[in-house]
Simulated scan of single mutants.
Amino acid sequence: MDLILWRHAEAEDNWEDMARKLTIKGQLQAKLSAQWLRQHLPDNRQIYCSEAVRSQQTARYLKQPFTVNKLFNPDCHPLDLATFLQQQLPTSTQIWVGHQPWIGQFCAYLLNGVWLPQQFWSVKKSAFWWFDVRFYQQRHQARVKVVLSPSNLK
């Protein structure tokens, strides 16, 4: 299965975190990332995003239906995502639009094969990590296919 972890684009500062909207720069970032993804995504795909406005705005640039799920909210725990991933069809492409730190934590988890809470990677705004993930007897094996940020797409 292909799994794409896409961090939301730059958002405005706002005291209410879930209501933060994309800035003008964030809109451009999301547009650049989405254009590249649309050109390279297979047809069989599912898009999920958090309940946060900025995550949904980022996902809309793919111009595809998406599912809002609180599992992908900023405060989610990466091990809950691991369980969710195991429940998905192995032939699908999953696109998860979300937040730091869980995206960086989940990248580290996928490649380390174990959960190490102190380890996570920095993921730039509107950057995405594309993994090929396979399961063998409830354990996963992942390899990185693509890592891109909007600054690489201009």
Rank of each mutant, 00 (worst) to 15 (best):
A19P: 00
P117E: 11
D13Y: 14
F66G: 02
G113M: 08
S50E: 05
N152I: 00
L116N: 13
V147T: 08
L3M: 14
M1E: 06
N44A: 13
A108C: 04
Q57Y: 02
I95L: 14
I95D: 03
Q56W: 09
C76I: 15
H77E: 12
D80M: 13
T91P: 04
K125I: 04
A59S: 02
E12D: 14
C107H: 02
V133D: 01
D80V: 10
L71I: 08
F66V: 04
K70H: 15
V114M: 14
Q141G: 09
L71E: 00
Y109V: 00
Q35W: 01
L79K: 08
L28V: 15
V123Y: 01
W121L: 14
T58I: 03
H77T: 01
I103C: 01
Q46C: 01
W129T: 11
N14A: 13
T83H: 14
D80E: 14
A142C: 02
T67V: 11
P74L: 08
L89W: 03
N112C: 05
D75P: 00
L148D: 05
M1Q: 11
Q141E: 02
G113Y: 01
L110M: 08
V97D: 06
L5E: 12
N69I: 05
G113R: 02
H140I: 00
L3H: 00
L81T: 06
W130I: 01
V144C: 03
L3T: 04
V68S: 14
A9N: 11
D80F: 10
Q105N: 06
L22T: 06
C107P: 01
N44H: 11
L153P: 06
M1F: 12
S50L: 12
R60G: 05
Q94W: 09
P42A: 09
C76V: 15
N112F: 04
F72C: 03
E12M: 14
N152E: 09
E16G: 06
L89P: 07
S122H: 14
Q29D: 14
W121R: 02
Q105R: 09
V114Q: 15
I47A: 07
R60S: 07
S149E: 06
S55I: 04
L62W: 03
P42V: 02
Q119C: 10
S50P: 13
V133T: 05
Q100R: 04
Q100G: 02
Q118A: 11
Q29G: 13
W15I: 12
R60D: 05
L41R: 07
L85I: 00
L3F: 05
Q46G: 01
I4G: 03
A142L: 00
K63H: 10
